[in-house]
C-alpha cells in the first residue's frame, strides 16, 4: 500500500518536473534570453598580493599606515568607518600620543551635547571614539551624493566577493566605456552622473574615480612612490585590516593549534593501532585461514575445481 502511494507521489513530482523542464526549454529556444552588457563586459577582480594573504599572512604596518593616510585624505570625505575606533590605530604602529593627535585633529567632530544647555553640539574626538561619519545621517549622505549613499568601509573587504582584490581593481579600473560595448549594446551607455567601471557588478558606478593622479597623497619619506596603483593597493590593505583587525592574531594562533592537533592525531592513531593490535590478533588467521594452511587449501580447492 505504502509503496503504491509512494509510486504515485513520485510519479506526480516527476511529471510536474518534466513538464516544467519542457516548458522552460521551449521558452529558452523560442526566445533565448538576450545577452547583457554586464554579462559580457564585467571583469573578475585582478590579482592582488598583500602581506596579509595566505595562512602565514601578517599585516605590513608600513603599508597599513599609508592606506590609512589614503583613507584619511581621500575616502573619509564621503565614506564612514564607523566600526573602527581611533584606539584601534595602535595596531598600525602609532603610539599613544600619535593616536591622540590623530583623533584630536580628525576633520569631522564627534556629535555630543552642550553640557550647559543640552543643545546638540560637537566635540573633538578622543582615542576611545569610533571614527565619526562624514554625514550626520543617511539622508544627509544621500542628499550630498545624488541619492547614492557612500557605504561604510569598515567591513568592505569582507562584504564583497573578491575582498581586497575587488577594492583594488575597482579603484584602478575606471576607464572610458569601450567602443565595442556601445557598438553591441547601444542602449547600455553609461548614464550621466555614473562612471564606467568593468569591475563593478552592473558596470556603472556612482562614485567618481577617487584616486586620479600620482602624488594625490604625499607619503612620508622612505615609502614607495604614491602612484594610483600603489595608493589603491595600500588602501585595500588598510581595509583588510579594518574588516578583520584580528587576522594576524588568528593566523598566529592557528599554527600552534594545528600542530598540536597533528601531534594529537598521530599519538591517538598509534594508541588506536596499539589497542586494536590485540583485537586483530584475536581473529588472526589461525586454523584454515592461517597463511600456511591457506596455501594447502588453495591447492585443495584447485584440485576440487573450485575457483577462488
Amino acid at each position: 500500500m505504502i509503496r503504491w502511494i509512494a509510486r504515485l507521489i513520485g510519479f506526480a513530482f516527476v511529471v510536474v518536473l518534466l513538464w516544467a523542464l519542457g516548458s522552460n526549454l521551449k521558452a529558452y529556444f523560442q526566445s533565448p534570453p538576450p545577452a547583457t552588457a554586464e554579462h559580457e563586459f564585467h571583469k573578475e577582480p585582478k590579482e592582488l598580493h598583500l602581506a596579509s594573504n595566505g595562512p602565514f599572512g601578517r599585516f605590513d604596518k608600513q603599508q597599513l599606515q599609508r592606506g590609512f593616510q589614503v583613507y584619511k585624505e581621500v575616502c573619509s570625505g564621503c565614506h564612514s568607518l564607523n566600526r573602527v575606533a581611533f584606539r584601534d590605530l595602535h595596531a598600525l604602529g602609532y603610539n599613544e600620543a600619535e593616536v591622540k593627535a590623530i583623533a584630536n585633529q580628525w576633520p569631522t567632530e564627534v556629535a555630543s551635547i552642550n553640557p550647559e544647555t543640552g543643545e546638540p553640539a560637537t566635540r573633538k574626538a578622543i582615542p576611545s571614539d569610533y571614527f565619526p561619519s562624514p554625514y550626520a545621517n543617511e539622508t544627509a549622505g544621500r542628499a550630498a551624493n545624488n541619492n547614492a549613499l557612500p557605504p561604510d568601509l569598515s567591513l568592505m573587504a569582507k562584504a564583497r566577493e573578491g575582498g581586497a582584490a575587488y577594492i583594488y581593481s575597482l579603484l584602478t579600473g575606471y576607464q572610458n566605456q569601450p567602443a565595442a560595448l556601445l557598438k553591441e549594446f547601444p542602449t547600455a551607455k553609461t548614464p550621466a552622473g555614473l562612471h564606467y567601471n568593468p569591475y563593478f557588478a552592473n558596470l556603472n558606478l556612482a562614485m567618481p574615480q577617487p584616486l586620479t593622479s600620482e602624488g594625490q597623497v604625499t607619503y612620508a619619506p622612505g615609502n614607495p612612490k604614491p602612484t594610483v596603483d600603489q595608493m589603491a593597493k595600500d588602501v585595500a590593505a588598510f581595509l583588510v585590516w579594518t574588516a578583520e583587525p584580528n587576522l594576524q592574531g588568528r593566523h598566529k594562533a592557528g599554527w600552534p593549534v594545528i600542530l598540536f592537533l597533528i601531534v594529537a592525531t598521530i599519538l591517538a592513531y598509534l594508541s588506536y593501532r596499539n589497542i586494536w593490535a590485540e583485537a586483530k590478533r584475536k581473529v588472526a588467521p589461525v586454523g584454515p585461514m592461517d597463511p600456511a594452511n591457506k596455501a594447502k587449501r588453495t591447492r585443495a580447492s584447485k584440485k576440487a575445481g573450485i575457483d577462488e
Binding site: A6, R7, I9, G10, F11, F13, V14, L17, L18, A20, L21, N24
Partner: peptide
Amino acid sequence: SEIASAYYFAHFLI
C-alpha cells in the same frame, strides 16, 4: 535542477 530533482524523487519513491 529539474532533471536532478526528478531523479531524487524517482530514486526514493519509484
